[in-house]
Computed example of a mutant assay.
Amino acid sequence: MSTQPVYDPPNKTDPSRPLTFAQHDFGAAAYDTYGATVLYNGEYALKDDPETLAPSSATLGPDYRSKHLTAPWAGIRNFPGPVTVSWRSKDGSAHEARIDLAQLFADRHIRHQVPREQLAASGVLAEDPQILLEINDRTITVLTRAMVHTREPQVPGNRYSDFRNDLIQVYSHTY
């Protein structure tokens, strides 16, 4: 008999414990690939033309991930199954992968870079994370970001900048 792990309710308000989540947003993007498809939660998060080479990330600038990786599928309960990915790299080689997000995020911790003493003093300290899958030629990378509320503005003089939304790499594999 297999037992399913039991998880406490998500913690988004107690800075003395790790911040955790019970749902997430998801998105996928492909660069320097042909026909990339990403299937997650029974839906295509990405389905590119098999005959057209996706643009190179280099053409989008050094901070392309911050500007172009988004998670339009919101409120997905953790975790409906693995992500199934298929694509052809820039050289035409075919690749397939299954990414087990439940394993990558087994602890359900919201990854962030805000020191505990800089977290907001009260209220909700973090929002549900975005989980982002990038296919870039032969490499799959899984990243995450979550809005984490801070005590002080992050941009001097801008009172509306009391948060961080850092992009953090969780996994990468080159095929």
Rank of each mutant, 00 (worst) to 15 (best):
T84I: 14
I131S: 00
V142G: 03
A71K: 05
R111A: 12
E152M: 14
G27V: 00
V83C: 03
T33Y: 01
V170L: 04
L167V: 07
M147L: 11
I131C: 01
A106Y: 01
V142H: 00
I135E: 02
A121W: 06
R145N: 06
A106T: 06
K90Q: 10
T150K: 07
S56Q: 06
E134W: 03
A120H: 13
H173Y: 11
V85T: 03
L143G: 07
L125M: 11
R138I: 05
L167H: 01
P80L: 10
A54W: 05
P115L: 02
A97E: 13
P50G: 08
H173C: 03
K90E: 02
P50W: 00
D162P: 00
R88P: 00
E51W: 08
A120Y: 09
D48N: 13
Y44Q: 10
H109S: 08
H149L: 14
D107A: 12
V148D: 00
E134V: 12
P15E: 03
L101K: 09
P5V: 11
D63Y: 08
T33A: 08
L69S: 01
A22M: 08
N78D: 15
R151Y: 08
L125Y: 09
P72H: 10
S93L: 05
V38G: 02
L143N: 02
E152R: 14
M147D: 01
I135C: 05
T174I: 06
D32M: 05
H109P: 07
S93Q: 13
A146C: 04
P10C: 10
L53Y: 06
P156V: 00
L167Y: 01
H173M: 09
Y64Q: 07
L46H: 05
L60D: 00
I140Q: 03
D25G: 15
Q113V: 07
R65C: 02
Q169P: 07
R98H: 15
E152K: 15
A74K: 15
R111P: 05
A97I: 04
L104A: 00
S57K: 02
A146P: 05
E43V: 15
D32G: 04
H24W: 11
D14I: 12
E43S: 13
D14E: 13
L69E: 01
F163H: 11
G123Y: 12
W87H: 05
Y64G: 04
A30K: 04
Y160W: 12
G42K: 13
G75Y: 00
Q113K: 12
S66G: 12
A126S: 14
S122D: 14
P55T: 08
V124A: 11
L53W: 02
P9M: 11
P15K: 14
L101Q: 05
D137V: 04
F163A: 09
V170M: 08
K12V: 13
I168R: 07
H173D: 11
I131L: 10
A28T: 07
Y31A: 03
N165D: 05
T33S: 06
G123L: 11
N136V: 03
G92S: 10
T139F: 06
L69P: 02
P82F: 09
A22S: 15
G157E: 10
Y34F: 15
H24C: 12
R138N: 08
G35D: 04
